[in-house]
Amino acid sequence: MQDSATALLIAALLLAPAASAEEGKENVSVPRDLFAVITLRGKPCGRVKSYERRAENDYLVTCESGHRYRVHVTEDQRVVVEER
């Protein structure tokens, strides 16, 4: 019972991001989303000062700390944060 429950939970945890990503009904603003991704990747930022959308899921972000990053999604659906 507990195993199946845990398996369900893990499945939910694993599948939720992708499924939700497809749903695309987020309540999160783009700067906040970008800041979360930059932080998840362990990059310093402080706060997103501005951003420029270069293409779909491709942003050039300027942080309050002065750092600039390119945040984009690769063809194999990986989020990449590159410092500029």
């Binding site: 939700s20 999160v28 990986r78 989020v79």
Partner: peptide
């Protein structure tokens, strides 16, 4: 919980995808 995880609006698209990459 599964529904909430799927439908939570606390995560943006890029954040979800980044988390999925990490997982």
């Amino acid at each position: 919980l599964e529904q909430e995880l799927r439908k939570t609006r606390a995560l943006g698209f890029l954040t979800r995808l980044a988390l999925k990459n990490d997982i």
